[in-house]
Structure formats: C-alpha cells, structure tokens
Design a protein around this nucleic acid. Structure first.
Length: 873
DNA sequence: CGAACCTTTGAGTTA
DNA sequence: CAAAGGTTCG
C-alpha cells in the first residue's frame, strides 16, 4: 500500500487575500451542492486548490467529474474568473464533454471559458495572437501530414537525396519526434540529426522550418514548439500569460509529451518574479540533468539500426536513451514558485508512447513539481467485480507504474469470457451472433462496442454486420478532414484565402484533371523558384508567355481566371455559398458525380457536410483557422447501433458490453511495437489491454482466432500472452458459437482449435504453447490446415478466380441466422432493380427473399444484404 | 503528356 | 488484398 503522498504539502501563498477569505468562509459553511455525492478522495482533489496537485485517477473513478467540479469550485469560490483558468485536454471530444458538463453544473456560464481546449487549439490561438514574433502571419495555415510530406519531398529533391532510401515520410516522422520533444533544429543532438540522409537530417529540419515560414504555415508540432520558442524569446509575452492563468488544469496527463510538459512548466511558473531563469526550462541542457532516474531498465534498448550503423555518431557521448531522459527533464528551477496546477491522469492508461508521450512525465510528477500533493482515486464506479479483477490482475504484470488498486462495490457480475475461433471470419460470425442474442435479450445496441487493435480488423465485422443487417457505426477511422475530398475542397478554399499557399495550389492544380500534369507543375516550380514568387503568381506569369503547350496554357489560364473570380466574389457572397460555387465551377463536384466507384456518393455527401459545417463560422478565414483542429464529423446519427472502433479511440468511453477480438500474439501485442520498443512496448500494449477491459461495465468478451489473414495471406497465430495473464477465477472459456454452423461440413478435423476448455491447466503451460507454435509453423507451409487448399487458391488469385471465393462465401449465410431481423414483409424492391449501397456501390437485384436481397454489385460481386441498407439508384 | 495498366510493396495506434 | 509506384500505350 502506498500512502497518498510522502511529501508535506506546502500551499503556495494566497494570491488574492480577499478571495481567500471568502473561500475560507465558504469552506466552513455547509458544503455547496456540487460537492455532494463526491467520495472523500474526489472531494480532496476538488478542494485542494493551492499548489501542484496530481490526481491519479484509475479507469472509471470519476476523473472528468473531478475536473469539472474543480473548475466549478474555483469559480464559485471566487478564486478566479473563467478566463483566468487554463484547462487543457487532448481531444476536442474531451473538451466538448467538459464544456457540456460544466454547463450542466453552472447553468450556461461556460461561454466565458475561452481557455478550455486541446493543447493544439490553445497553442494555436496563442500563436495567432503573436504570430509576427515567430515569423508568421496571424492567418497562417496549419499543414496536414500530406502537405508536410510533399514539402519534404521537394526539399529532398533539392538536396539530391534519393527518396527511395530516405523516404520523406520517415523524415516527417523524425521531425515530428523532435518537435514532440521540444527540440528546435539547433537543439537536435548531432548524432540523431545525422541518422537521416547521410548526415543531412538536421539541415533538412532547419530548411523545412524556413520553408514553413515562407509559406506562412505551421505543422501540428509547431503549434506547441513555436509557442515554447515564443515564450522563451519573449519573456514579456510569457509573463502576460503567467499572470492571466491563475489555475491550470490538465486532463490525461500521462499522455503529455516533452513539448507539452515544457509548455505547461513555463506557464505554471508564477509570474511575480520576472527574473525566473528561463534557461532553466530550455530543453537540451544536458549539464543540468538530474542523474537520479529510473533509467536502469533495459527497456530502451534500441533494436535494429542503432548507432553502430553510423560510425559518425560515436562522438556523441550519450546513449540515445540517456539523452532522451535528460532532455525530457531538463534541470528545473526548484526555487521558482509554481502556480496552482492540477494534473489528472492514469499511468495505466498511457497508450500514446509512440506519439511521443512520456509516461515519465506522470511518474516523476512529484519530482518535477516539488511539494505536489498526490491524490489517488481508486474507487471504480463502472465495472463489475470480475471485469475489474481481470483488468487489475493483467495490469499488475507491468513494472513501470505508480500502482493503484482499483476497488468496486458492485456485484461480481458475469465472468470475462475468452473464446477461440478457427479464423477471423468465424470470429466475426460468433460476435455477430452474440450481439444478436444480446439484442433479443433487450440490450440496447448503443451499449455494445467492438474494440480492435488495428483498423484493418474492422472490415470483417463490417462485412458481417452488413449481411446480418445489424446497424453499426465506425468511430474514429479516417478523420473527416483527412479524407481526400475534404482536403481537396479545403485546398481550393486555401488558395482563395491565401494565394501564397503553394501546397494547396499544387494539390488541386490538376484535380479534377485539366491536363496540367507533372511536367507543367515542374515548370511552374522552376519559374517560381527562380523569381522567388509563389506558384500561383508563377502560373499567372507563365500563361502570358508561350512556354507551355497551347492546351496546358489554356486550362491554366482558365484556372487562374476562376480563382480571380472567386476571390472577387468573396466580398459579396457568403463563404458557404462561395464554397458551393467553387466546388461547382471548378468541376470538382462533377468529377465525383461521374465517378462510378462505390464511395463516390459518400464523398459527395461529405462535401455537403463540409459546406454545412462552414455555417458555424463567421467567414472563410475563421473557418480555415479552425478547420484542421476542430473538424469532427459527428453526423448526428443517433440511431441505435453497435460501435466499432480501435482500442485507442475507445479511451474515455464506456459500454455495458465490450467485445475484444484479435487477442493473438503478433496482433495484440503488436509485433511491431515489440520489435521497436522492446519491453516498454509490451507494457504499453498491456496498458492498452487494460484500457480495453476497463471500458466494460457488465460484460467483457475476449476472442482469439487460430488463423488470420495478414497481408492477404493466411497465417496461423497463437493466443495472446495477455490471455494467460488473466486470473483464472474471473474468466470463463467458452466455445465459439459461430463455428458450429459449418465446422463439420468444412472438414477441418483435428487441426481445429478444440481444447480451449483446458484453460488453467494445459492451456497455460509452455508446452501447450509450444505445440501451438509448432503447429503454426507446419501449417504455414501448407496454408491453414486445409492441406494446401488456400495456398492453391492464392496462387491463382491473379487469374480472375473471383467466382471461386465468392461461391465459397455463399453457403455460409445460414438462413436461420437472419430470422431475428427478418420483417417478413415483402421487399419494396423488385428483381433487376438498380440499387446503391454505401459500402458496396452500385448493383442489380438478382434475388429477393423477404427483406433480404441478393445483389450483384459492379465492384464488390454478389452479396446478400438486408434491403434497408440499399437505396434505389 | 496523360491515362491505363502492371508490378511491387506493405497493413499501427493520432492531435 | 489494397494502395502506391513504375511502365507502357494512345
């Protein structure tokens, strides 16, 4: 057992004596309404307003409630006004949620919380105010990954670096990593900078930053890094914000990276002393580093291309891991007074290490914020006993954790189930059936979720649910604004708004096709570089000459005229109308209307949604400013549906029934994470498993398949080690239900996974696992246990043998399964009707059976689908 | 020069 | 199996 905090808690002296008096009186009198119902720890977390506070909030312990109540408390105690509270979250969703709940608690006084938002949106807002101090204009563009890569490609070309050997994507990743660690080009350790492009990595980073300034653009990392630079180089600006923010609250602190940590540290220092040495928080100050660290684990051992590949690195005196450690926690100034900062997080839910998050930030909080009070929330109000026990037992296998013991007062409930199935298809079928069973038992589908490790797992479920007619929705997935059609549309608007936005111009110059191919663009580039003007201006100049062929020249001139006209219209037309005009006149809408592919209709729908969402904004400028940060498609579909998402996007959510498929070695834990991060990676995967389990209120159901298709070829897998780490008393092994339907006819025989009942005895023994592994090796040679059957199919896969695989599917749809959904009424469709389906595209009805249609799709082949999923084309 | 076709390669989580 | 890149044809 760990005591709440070993350190004595010294409250920072009261800033506002008058307000303090009120606070004291309030505390003495009856507790305000909003405090009732909080348990003692929660209440402590809400009421401890002075000094640094770390709230270790396990899953389901009321974290959001504590945060919002704390804000309410600060406000009602008169300790600060709404605009004096800085409250940061990671996702827009979390920010929205907090605003909503604050609103419920306080009435609608929430509009006045301008500094409640994500790290990036708040960083971006500050940056826009002081843009000129970091060589930007306040209307700078926020680049998406695509733009970044395109820009880097150009730089690589300019440096004559083979982008085969040194992919732009990789450089983007490196730069992103550096920015996450708060490193400007000059601060990147020489050895690391040399790893890319024959030693040119650092130089490329520097010129990338230069180019960004010329383009008046910032990437995602800059929103924080440039903020830090701003604060460092302009202490007066920093002081202004230090003065403004009387209280700082941070959600999901375990997910903060070094840059975010530095940013928080700068802001959390009390501004009363202008003389606080800023150098104290400059990253990379190795000499100040604190040697006392938890760096003994060999978890950070770099596998693969280590320093040995690069002899030039030997001059680097520090192993990468130690350098990171020291950069992560540069010398602090213990003497500098700290403001009232409250960080809420759970080290057991840190799942973003790959994105630069430093679990260390939370593990070392007491060290970084001396005098911090640590409060543990360990009462779980979400899950039943068995589920919580399973999750706790699993996570206890991790070593690097602060340690919490979650308790629940709920009943034991149902045991966690583990189900094995033959392959991923059977897994999907089994889960589909169980969900239908739950539905028959009266469960609401909104309370059912399927959480997968990797998004490619989702397709199988989608396919299955479509044939079952089971409504589902995919959460997360490709972000709305990351979709090609949205980015294209935005690119048009960006060029209108800011003619110097070369990346946007390049994106749409030949979309839709106008006969302006690579050659033309290259020519424009040369022209632009020579005269140091934006591409658009170069284009304007070039059409006046006869350097281009008449065809290209003509369409380029048309394009320029279009843009001129659109820009002129901007004055007299609303921005939403302008967007419609642009999409129309540019031929962009037409391009998708002509497109016969399955997702074209969806894309047009998305474009409409985009225009609709513009209405919320004042003008085009305002819209573009917020777009890359705020866009979330929530498409208001409130209908009952199963949720399908990755484990990562499930964090913070909860459901009565949670299905967790794919618990197999290699997939979960992911082999790649293990290869790249070693033991630290394994622990992160385990935390992910813990997150998955703790999403469940009443039922958690785990699955593993013996065969899974990876990269299009079948391979045999063994159950995840995490299954072995579950406590047997809380787990029940069940037989896959989906398999019974065709297991006999399929003739799988002895290789079928059939001894799952022996969990706890042979199942967990190394011998059993070795046997599985051996079987896996043998079967890999022959295909999954069908004596080469699959193998022969895959070798014919290029010879248009589609019908074969389709036919194989057909008998798998067992009529009985569909009865539950069948309405019995005749379908409103008739044979040969032309229909459209969101997922499969266009097709013709070839068979009707009640409300179930068999449709021959143009692209997707023949499928059985419930009629409510298609519309007349 | 651009579009269509063919080959290769690669699938992990995201503000 | 899919997307992305490279090659060839019109």
């Amino acid at each position: 057992m760990t005591e709440p905090s070993k350190l004595p808690h010294h409250g920072v002296p009261e800033h506002q004596p008058a307000a303090g008096g009120i606070a004291a009186r309030a505390r003495a009198s009856a507790a305000p309404q909003y405090l009732t119902g909080l348990n003692p720890e929660q209440r402590d977390a809400v009421e401890t307003l002075d000094g640094p506070v770390l709230v270790l909030a396990g899953a389901g312990t009321g974290k959001t409630r504590v945060l919002t109540t704390r804000i309410a408390h600060i406000l009602s105690q008169g300790r600060a006004r709404p605009h004096e509270i800085l409250s940061v979250t990671f996702t827009n969703k979390a920010a929205r949620e907090m605003k909503l709940r604050l609103g419920q608690m306080l009435g609608q006084a929430v509009e006045g919380m301008p500094w409640l938002g994500t790290f990036h949106s708040i960083g971006g807002r500050i940056l826009r105010i002081h843009a000129e101090l970091v060589q930007l204009k306040s209307n700078f563009t926020v680049l998406d990954v695509d733009d970044q890569v395109r820009l880097l490609k150009q730089l690589l070309q300019a440096e004559n670096i083979d982008d085969k050997r040194w992919p732009a994507r990789m450089l983007a990743g490196l730069i992103d990593g550096w920015k996450n660690r708060g490193l400007t080009p000059s601060q990147v350790p020489a050895g690391e900078a040399a790893v890319f492009g024959n030693g040119k990595g650092g130089k490329l980073y520097a010129s990338y930053q230069e180019r960004l300034k010329i383009l008046n653009a910032a990437d995602f990392g800059d929103l924080l890094l440039e903020n830090i630079r701003l604060f460092r180089e302009h202490p007066d600006v920093l002081r202004q914000y230090q003065n403004r923010f009387k209280f700082i609250l941070v959600d999901e602190y375990q997910d903060t990276n070094v840059a975010q940590y530095l940013w928080l540290r700068l802001l959390s220092q009390a501004a009363s002393k202008p003389g606080v040495p800023l150098s104290a928080v400059i990253p990379g100050r190795i000499e100040d580093a604190n040697p006392e660290s938890r760096g003994n684990e060999d978890s950070s051992r770099d596998s693969g291309s280590g320093p040995s590949d690069h002899p030039g690195m030997t001059e680097d005196p520090l192993p990468a891991s130690r350098a990171r450690e020291q950069i992560a926690h540069p010398g602090l100034a213990p003497s500098s007074p700290l403001k009232n900062i409250c960080c809420v997080g759970d080290d057991d839910q840190s799942i973003y290490g790959w994105r630069g998050a430093e679990v260390d930030n939370i593990l070392r909080f007491e060290h970084d914020f001396p005098g911090a009070k640590v409060i543990r929330l360990e009462r779980n109000y979400r899950s039943t006993g068995h589920i919580l026990a399973a999750a706790s037992h699993l996570i206890a296998h991790n070593e690097g954790r602060l340690g919490k013991t979650l308790r629940t007062e709920d009943v034991d409930g149902e045991k966690v189930t583990v189900t094995g199935s033959w392959d991923s298809e059977e897994e999907a079928r089994a889960i589909g059936e169980e969900i239908e069973e739950l539905q028959r038992a009266g469960e609401n589908l909104n309370e059912v979720a399927i959480l997968v490790r990797a998004s490619f797992q989702m397709r199988e479920f989608e396919d299955r649910f479509v044939t079952l007619g089971l409504p589902y929705r995919v959460i997360g997935g490709p972000r709305f604004y990351e979709r090609a059609e949205i980015r294209d549309a935005l690119a048009y608007l960006r060029v209108i708004n800011s003619p110097a936005d070369d990346l946007a111009f390049e994106r749409i110059v030949n979309v839709p096709k106008r006969g302006l191919g690579d050659a033309t663009v290259q020519m424009l580039h040369d022209h632009a570089r020579k005269r140091r003007i934006p591409l658009f201006e170069a284009a304007r100049a070039v059409v006046e000459t006869d350097e281009l062929k008449p065809k290209a020249r003509g369409s380029l001139r048309d394009l320029i005229l279009h843009f001129d006209r659109w820009r002129a219209r901007r004055e007299v037309t609303s921005h939403t109308e302008l967007a419609e005009i642009v999409l129309d006149e540019s031929g962009y809408t037409e391009m998708w209307q002509k497109d016969r592919s399955a997702d074209a209709a969806g894309r047009l729908e998305n474009l409409k949604e985009l225009v609709r969402s513009m209405e919320e904004f004042e003008n085009l400028q305002g819209f573009l400013e917020h777009i890359s940060l705020v866009m979330d498609r929530d498409g208001g579909a409130d209908d009952e549906a199963v949720s399908l998402m990755t484990l990562h996007s499930a964090k913070g959510l909860e459901f009565d029934n949670v299905f967790l498929p794919g618990w197999e070695e290699g997939l979960f834990p992911s082999q790649r994470t293990l290869d790249e991060q070693g033991r630290a990676g394994l622990e992160e995967e385990r935390r992910l498993a813990h997150v998955g389990l703790t999403r469940a209120r009443r039922r958690a159901k785990l699955y593993f398949a013996t065969n899974r298709r990876i990269h299009g070829t079948w391979s045999t897998t063994i159950p995840s080690r995490f299954l072995d780490e579950l406590p047997a008393p809380n787990v029940e092994i069940t037989e896959s239900k989906g398999g019974s339907g065709w297991g006999g006819s399929g003739g799988y025989g002895p290789s079928r996974f059939d001894n799952v009942e022996s969990f706890g005895s042979s199942y967990t023994t190394p011998g059993w696992q070795r046997a599985q592994a051996n079987r896996a090796r043998n079967q890999n040679r022959n295909g999954p246990g069908r004596g080469g059957f699959e193998e022969s199919q895959s070798s014919f896969q290029n010879s248009r043998n589609d019908t074969f695989s389709r036919n194989k599917r057909a008998p798998m749809v067992i009529e009985g399964e569909l009865v539950a959904k069948s309405t019995g009424t005749a379908s409103e469709f008739s044979l040969d009707d032309r229909v459209f389906h969101q997922k499969f595209g266009y097709g013709n009805v070839v068979k009707i059976d009640g409300n179930k249609l068999t449709i021959a799709f143009e692209k997707a082949g023949e499928k059985k689908v419930v009629d409510s999923f298609v519309e007349r084309a």
